[in-house]
């Protein structure tokens, strides 16, 4: 069965980040032989004075393929892990969502909850109501437990297949090096190379590698986003997007989702 594991609000200003904790859970699951996991994604939620986030209000999620019988073990392990690793000032939340168990309508509802958490202030009661209704595991592990909102929202956003960026950057080539799309696709955890306008680049196109190479989650794939840089002679080259451009792209995508 396919599951999503999402955590939120586990840290304080000085501690290890939520992303690292998600990564640790993911690796442990692999080490225990519980199934095959995918990389962790970061999902930005609303920045609002009424939301008590530490510094960025983002949640961290990963997908895993496990035997159905292992689901209670995964949940117990993640719960115990959060109870042990989370900071005292944190308000941690855990969501474990069994994708196969949801109808298409239920999936849309969870995805909508995720997008709603990017625009409005939601309550714990709303998160628990939805989780109970759809039989999604949602639990809190200290503090106010506010993190359950972000945990459910992050799972919904990962389920959308079109939100967030992957934790970590790719060690591919040198900055300024031109590389074919085919070569980029030969690296693990890079599924596609797309322009910011949505076009998928052909394999023989060249891309100039930037400082940090990040992938974003688009249509369920890990995608390198590139933009055309004008050479001034009517021609252009593709360059990989910097973090600030990815952030702008994310904001643009959120506007599209709003409509």
């Amino acid at each position: 069965m396919q599951i999503l594991v999402c955590i939120d609000d586990t840290d304080n200003i000085e501690s290890r980040g939520t992303g690292e904790l998600a990564e640790m859970i993911r690796r442990s699951m692999e080490e225990k032989g519980w199934g095959k996991t995918q990389h962790v994604t970061r999902h930005q939620l609303l920045l609002h004075p009424d939301i008590p986030y530490t510094s960025h209000n983002s949640s961290m999620c990963f997908q895993a393929e496990i035997e159905a019988a292992l689901l209670p073990h995964v949940i117990s392990y993640a719960e115990a892990f959060l109870a042990r690793e989370c900071q005292q000032e944190a308000d941690p939340g855990l969501c474990v969502l069994a994708v196969d168990g949801l109808t298409e309508q239920a999936k849309r509802t969870v995805i909508n909850f995720g997008y709603k958490a990017k625009k409005t202030v939601l309550t714990k009661a709303e998160a628990y109501d939805l989780a109970n209704q759809l039989e999604i595991h949602l639990s809190e592990h200290g503090g106010t437990g506010q993190g359950v909102i972000g945990a459910l929202a992050g799972a919904g956003l990962r389920l959308s297949n079109n939100d967030g960026w992957f934790k970590g950057d790719h060690k591919v080539g040198r900055q300024g090096e031109a590389m074919t799309v085919q070569r980029l696709l030969s690296f693990s955890a890079i599924d596609q190379v797309k322009s910011v306008n949505g076009a998928c680049l052909p394999e023989n196109d060249y891309v100039v590698i930037g400082n940090k190479l990040k992938t974003v989650l688009l249509e369920g794939k890990a995608v390198i986003l590139v933009y055309p840089e004008d050479l001034g002679n009517g021609d252009f080259i593709w360059k990989t997007c910097e973090k600030k451009q990815l952030r702008e792209y994310e904001a643009k995508m959120n506007c599209v989702a709003d409509k």
């Binding site: 992303g19 986030y53 510094s55 983002s58 961290m60 940090k212 910097e242 973090k243 600030k244």
Partner: peptide, 20 residues
């Protein structure tokens, strides 16, 4: 942490853990 960095200049308030 890496996933929260947004500025290309590593030393930037935008990449600092003390910015909220």
């Amino acid at each position: 942490v890496e996933e929260e960095l947004i500025a290309e200049e590593e030393v930037s308030c935008y990449n600092c853990r003390y910015r909220r």
